[in-house]
């Protein structure tokens, strides 16, 4: 099932039980799978047209009236286009609004650079009180939805809307504030998010063939960051690689670097969009163009390990 289908089905299920939930679209209800909700909930699922600023502030008004609005658009229009409305109407006013951006980073594919959010995580992470979450697969999305609603405060849900390969098991236990250690390892930590988790797992297999044991962590919640899990891992492995479908500035690399540098500095290498804008292409092509690949993660892991070893050798020579 596509991620948007799961998203809409979960909303449907929860709207049935909880009259506070409202869904507002800005002319992308078809793209985001939320269009069907309008038949069943004509009062609580509606479209404001191509007016994202209005959507965000209307949602804040509804939240002040006791509702829990979900607002949806593509990632760039759900974040950078309306970051002042999110900052002031929603976050500063402490309104319980859930912001859903779809097509993160290169997954905007043929819509190209204008629709590719390389900065949304940086924007949303810097807004006080914002929770920032990117599910890795449909199982995680489904399990996250009740926790997102239960959380009393603004949440940014960065949603890949098409099909994702299954990463997690059906009986997996989800905790919004706890990163998932998907595979244990002792030589290097790979912290990945979104579509890069799949690449990280492939990189782990490549590295295993070279005699390297990588620990793979799915960092689904970028803020608040589960630094405890990450720090425990780097204390064990001594080096870390981050992998994200976002600019290397402001997103996962930055969040991990902040946590590691302040608490337990270790060599860090990163895979991500190298401070450039996106462009048109199919997902596979864009992964190659921007270096968002398992091969690149494996190469960066080798670099991180080499840096760790050279530091340790340096230490012995003193």
């Amino acid at each position: 099932m596509e991620m948007r289908g799961i998203f809409a089905a979960e909303l449907d299920r929860m709207m049935e039980q909880d009259e506070r939930i409202v869904v507002i679209d800005a002319d992308l209800a078809k793209a985001n799978g939320t269009l069907l909700l309008r038949e069943k909930y004509p009062d609580r699922a509606f479209d404001v047209g191509v007016a994202e600023q209005n959507m965000a502030s209307i949602a804040a008004g509804l939240a002040s009236y006791g509702f829990i609005p979900f607002i949806t658009s593509f990632c760039p229009f759900a974040t950078r286009r309306i970051c002042d409305q999110i900052a002031v109407s929603i976050a500063y006013a402490s309104q319980n609004v859930k912001i859903v951006g779809s097509d993160p980073g290169i997954s905007a594919e043929l819509n190209g650079g204008t629709h590719m959010s390389v900065e949304d995580l940086g924007i949303m992470r810097a807004i006080p009180s914002m929770t920032v979450f990117e599910p890795v697969d449909g199982i995680q999305l489904k399990k996250a939805m009740p926790q997102i609603i239960e959380h009393n405060g603004p949440v940014y849900l960065r949603l890949f809307r098409k099909k994702r390969p299954r990463i997690l098991a059906e009986d997996y236990e989800f905790n919004l504030s706890r990163a998932d250690i998907l595979q244990a390892g002792s030589d290097v930590t790979i912290a990945a998010s979104g579509i890069m988790v799949e690449e990280a797992l492939k990189a782990r297999a490549v590295l295993k063939g070279q005699g390297i044991e990588a620990e793979v962590i799915n960092v689904h919640t970028l803020k608040p960051l589960d630094s405890e899990t990450i720090l425990k891992s780097v204390v064990k492995t001594g080096c870390i690689v981050t992998a994200e479908n976002h600019n290397i500035i402001g997103g996962l690399r930055s969040a991990v670097a902040e946590a590691v540098a302040e608490n337990f500095p270790v060599p860090l290498r990163s895979v991500g969009i190298q401070d450039v804008f996106g462009e048109v292409g199919r997902l596979g092509e864009l992964k190659e163009i921007f270096g968002l690949t398992a091969e690149n993660i494996a190469a960066k892991a080798q670099e991180a390990i080499a840096a760790k070893n050279s530091q340790r050798t340096g230490g012995k020579q003193k």
Partner: peptide, 24 residues
């Protein structure tokens, strides 16, 4: 009843509040 200061936003919030009142 509403946090304001970033001009233009409060008016949209009022629209949201009016919709909320209609729903309730």
């Amino acid at each position: 009843d509403m946090t304001t200061g970033a001009l233009g936003q409060g008016f949209s919030c009022a629209v949201g509040i009016a919709i909320g009142s209609k729903i309730k």
